[in-house]
Amino acid sequence: MSDNLILTANIDGADDFYADLLAAHEGLSPEASAALNARLLLVLANHIGDRTVLAEAIAAAARKAK
């Protein structure tokens, strides 16, 4: 299903990244946090650029959606 999307561990210093992510949300209201996530998503999507990878990423994320 995901021929192009990397779904194995790929972030060097995963804990540091996760801490950065939480820090960005610190002190924000739920609305402001949601807006930050939306902006982050769009920034990352543009960096990836490849529509095939993006479609696979949407599908991977949607697996848990009920």
């Binding site: 807006a35 939306a38 902006r39 998503l41 769009l42 920034v43 543009n46």
Partner: peptide, 20 residues
Amino acid sequence: RLLRDAVLDLAEDFEFARPL
């Protein structure tokens, strides 16, 4: 609406969001 507003906010600062 959240995603729409995110696009608009980003468009002010970054060229990449403008085509959206």
